[in-house]
Computed example of a mutant assay.
Amino acid sequence: MAAPLRSQVLQLMRQDILAAEFKPGERLVEARLCALYEVSRTVIREVLRQLESEGLVTTVPNRGPVITELTAFEAKALFEVRCALEGLAGALFAERADAEQRKRLGEVVRWFSRSYCEADLAERLAMKDEFYSILTAGAVNPVIDSTLRGIHARVQMLRGLSMQAEGRGPETVRELEAIHEAAAVRGDADAARRACETHVRNAATTALRELAARHGDHQESKAD
């Protein structure tokens, strides 16, 4: 039962971090986490290691694990790289993807469109992960694939902020449909690149706005 238990706690804690149950920079005390999730220190330590690999937790010398606190500058830098890479991935998908990959991209976009409103944050992130998995596989470029995986891990919290923002859901659906239309249906590399870049830029605008608001709330709570 150990592995399923770790997976359950990992999912719960990931959702709590993305839902701002923990504050940026907050120290993660093992004893408190054990009591909160009703598991052993061994499970908590394994979960924290996984969350650190995803970029949600950072180990700070003399403090231990804390919730990752991205600055606006760091967030912008990550989105700039993500924009360039996803634009290239979309263009290459339009040129290289096979029929099955084009079909699967359409299926996941339709799934996202149907399910987005009722899905919780974890389900939304899972659907987006599947979308990117298909997109990068169809680009047939292992460097883009591995680099984007690292970028997506580091912007996971920012993706959570963007996807929870009011009004962002319908925009995301339209943007993914535009990527699918350009890359999978028409095979138009230039249009696919532009559609991917538009999606990332819009996500960046929303996430940076939400990040600023969250940091403002965090600073106020510290002052209180």
Rank of each mutant, 00 (worst) to 15 (best):
L48Q: 14
L70I: 01
R27S: 08
E54H: 00
S53L: 15
S40G: 12
E38Y: 03
A31C: 04
E21S: 03
V66H: 04
S53E: 15
L48T: 08
T58C: 02
E46S: 11
V39H: 11
L28M: 11
C34N: 01
V39S: 12
L48W: 14
V66E: 09
R27F: 13
T42Y: 08
L28A: 15
L70T: 03
N62G: 07
L36Q: 11
R41M: 06
A20E: 12
L70K: 05
E52F: 00
L51D: 03
V39I: 09
I67G: 09
V57M: 05
T59K: 11
C34D: 01
V29Y: 03
P24S: 08
L48K: 04
F22W: 06
V47T: 01
E30N: 14
L33Q: 05
V60F: 07
L48D: 08
S53K: 14
E30S: 15
A31Q: 12
V29G: 00
K23M: 06
R45I: 07
E46F: 07
L36M: 14
P24T: 08
L36H: 11
G55H: 05
R63Y: 10
V60W: 01
P61A: 05
P65N: 09
E26M: 13
E52M: 09
E52V: 03
V43C: 07
G55V: 00
P61D: 05
V39Y: 13
A19H: 08
S53D: 14
R49P: 02
R32E: 13
V60I: 15
K23P: 00
E26W: 09
F22I: 05
S53Y: 12
E46K: 14
I44A: 03
T42F: 01
G64F: 11
R32M: 13
E21M: 00
A19D: 08
V66Y: 07
R27C: 03
I67F: 08
E30Y: 15
G55Q: 03
I67Q: 13
T59N: 01
L51I: 02
P61I: 01
R49D: 04
A20C: 13
N62H: 13
I44D: 04
Y37D: 03
Q50Y: 03
S40K: 04
G64K: 10
E30R: 11
E30C: 06
L33E: 04
R41G: 13
R41E: 10
P65R: 07
L48H: 09
C34V: 00
T58A: 09
E26Q: 15
C34Y: 02
L70C: 02
L33F: 05
E38W: 05
V39T: 15
N62A: 12
G55K: 06
K23V: 02
L51S: 02
P65L: 14
R45N: 14
P65D: 14
E52T: 09
R49C: 02
A35W: 02
E38A: 15
E38H: 08
T59C: 06
R27W: 08
R49F: 03
G25I: 01
Q50M: 04
E21L: 07
R45V: 11
E21N: 04
R63K: 13
V60Y: 06
T68Q: 05
E46Y: 11
R45F: 13
R41T: 12
R45P: 09
R32F: 14
A19E: 11
